[in-house]
C-alpha cells in the first residue's frame, strides 16, 4: 500500500545536518555512493562513467550557496548545503506511487522503494519538492536515500558503524543520525539547542530531517573590518589625525 502508515510508531529516524560546520568536502556524497552501489539492492549505476557525458544516480548532493545575512549587515557567508531525502511524515512521493513500490515504514518512518515493484514512471520524483529521488539509468527504477537501512540494523557490523554512511564518514561531524520522534534523543536535543529547522515547512510535507542554521557572529561588529574608535590618549591622537 502506498497509503501512509495508519499507526506510525513514535520513532522517526532521520538526519540532523549542521550548516555551520559542513565544509562541503563531498565525503558524505562519495561514501553514500560507494555504500549504496555495493549494497543489497541493485547498484547505484552510472551511465557513460568514463565517456564524454557521464551521469548517474546519487542519493546525496552538496550544493554551495552564498547567503547575504542582510539582517545583520554582515559580509555574508558560504553555506554548504547537503541535500538528500528528508523522510517526510506526509510523504507525497509515497501516496502518488501507482504501484505500491514507494512506501513509508510504520516502525521507524524510513521511506523506501521496493525495486521489484517500481515501474520507473518518475511520478514520485515529480512529487518531491526537495529533489530527493533520482532514476537509475541502468536498473530503470527510482533510487533514494534508505537512511542506510542495511547499516543501521545490521547485526554483522560493529555497533559504532551502525549509522548511515554519510554520518559515519563526515570529517567535520556535521551530520547526525537518530530518533527525532524522541524529544530526549541526542539529535532532538541538538535541534532544540541550535534551533534546527525543517525545509519549506509551509508546503506541509512535514520533513523529519532538520538543518541547523549557521551560527550568528557573536556581535554584528565582529563581522566588520573596521576597528572601534579608541578612547583616551589614542582617541585624542585619532581625532587629531583625522582632522
Amino acid at each position: 500500500m502506498t497509503g501512509l502508515p495508519e499507526n506510525p510508531s513514535a520513532k522517526k529516524l532521520g538526519l540532523v545536518i549542521d550548516l555551520d560546520t559542513c565544509v562541503g568536502c563531498q565525503a558524505c556524497v562519495v561514501h553514500c555512493k560507494e555504500w549504496n552501489t555495493s549494497s543489497t539492492a541493485s547498484p547505484l549505476a552510472d551511465t557513460d562513467p568514463y565517456g564524454e557525458n557521464p551521469t548517474g544516480a546519487w542519493l546525496n548532493r552538496v550544493h554551495g550557496f552564498e547567503v547575504e545575512d542582510a539582517d545583520t549587515n554582515g559580509p555574508g557567508r558560504t553555506v554548504h548545503f547537503p541535500r538528500s531525502c528528508l523522510h517526510c511524515e506526509n510523504a507525497a512521493c509515497v501516496t502518488v506511487c501507482p504501484t505500491g513500490a514507494s512506501y513509508k515504514r510504520a516502525e521507524d518512518g524510513i521511506v523506501l522503494v521496493d525495486e521489484a515493484k517500481c515501474i520507473g514512471c518518475g511520478l514520485c520524483a515529480w512529487a518531491c519538492p526537495y529533489g530527493a529521488r533520482e532514476m537509475d539509468g541502468v536498473a530503470r527504477v527510482m533510487k533514494k536515500c534508505t537512511l542506510c537501512i542495511d547499516r543501521i540494523y545490521n547485526q554483522h557490523l560493529p555497533v559504532d558503524e551502525r549509522e548511515p554512511a554519510c554520518v559515519r564518514t563526515c570529517p567535520a561531524k556535521a551530520r547526525h543520525f537518530g530518533d527525532l520522534g524522541d524529544p530526549n534523543s541526542d539529535v532532538s536535543r541538538l535541534v532544540a539547542e541550535r534551533e534546527g529547522v525543517p525545509l519549506m515547512p509551509e508546503l506541509g510535507y512535514r520533513p523529519t530531517n532538520r538543518y541547523l542554521p549557521p551560527r550568528r557572529p557573536t556581535t554584528a561588529k565582529a563581522t566588520t573590518a573596521l576597528e572601534p574608535a579608541p578612547g583616551g590618549f589614542l582617541g585624542w591622537l585619532d581625532r587629531l589625525l583625522a582632522d
Binding site: T55, F65, V67, E68, D71, V79, A125, E134
Partner: peptide
Amino acid sequence: IGLPERGPARLVEAPHTERNY
C-alpha cells in the same frame, strides 16, 4: 535551504558538473 531570514541566497557552486536526472 531553510534560512528565509538570512537571505537573499544564491547558488555559487553546483553539486555536480554534468547533467543528472
